[in-house]
Design a protein around this nucleic acid. Structure first.
Lengths: 119, 119
DNA sequence: CTGGATCCCGAATGATACTG
DNA sequence: CAGTATCATTCGGGATCCAG
């Protein structure tokens, strides 16, 4: 995600920072608390380690996520949402999630919601 | 913005619906109320009519925006946020705007904010 | 050796310019 | 305004590298 040099509006900046196929899902998954790369990879359906790493890196650079690396065996890295920025963006994502659920209900996609236990 | 056939999460769906360089700004501008294409084009710095039209079309298809065409000469079309979906997404965008302002303050981009009168 | 992270490349998609 | 062409970015695969 390449940022522009100038933004006409802070909103654009943030939108660019969370733009990308996997970023919202990663942040969403991180709402459950600090977790490892392996767990993220397991829980996020369809993502590859490479994509996960790339997007995590950007989220980290933009200050939404941070990580702790604990050396030793096995080598373990844990990722978590930063406070307040990471936690704040979650508020926005919650609204989007809510809109999505309502939208799907109203557009005959209830089946998918049931399968995920969201309804 | 091509939507996928399956989404693992409603959040992804919404993120895809507002993805695109100009969509957040268009929605943001529409928070000020119903307005015409010409005014949008004038107020959104750097957008071309083509881009504006395309993005408005998608936002309309996804139910965030609607338009009223009042016949007569000249033919006048006005766009506005739908209720509740369009207004709801605005709540998410407000949070993003806020995060963006804070981010810019903390990263030496205050100058840009002052120029826009946001600070 | 194992898990974490980066590099290079082709294919697909988005943005903008150009044109009628 | 719509259609097409061009240019820039992103996605994803696979190889590779680094560190304990």
């Amino acid at each position: 995600m390449k940022l522009r040099e100038t933004y006409t509006c802070p909103l654009e900046l943030v939108h660019d920072m969370i733009k990308g196929k996997w970023k919202p899902i990663i942040l969403w998954r991180l709402r459950l608390g600090k977790t490892t790369l392996a767990k993220l990879e397991r829980d996020i359906e369809g993502i590859t380690q490479k994509m996960l790493l790339e997007h995590l890196k950007e989220l980290t650079e933009f200050g939404f996520v941070d990580k702790v690396v604990s050396g030793g065996y096995p080598l373990k890295t844990e990722y978590y949402l930063t406070s307040p920025q990471g936690e704040r963006i979650l508020d926005a994502l919650k609204i989007m999630q809510e809109i999505g659920i309502t939208y799907m209900k109203n557009n005959g996609m209830e089946q998918a919601l049931k399968e995920k236990g969201l309804i």
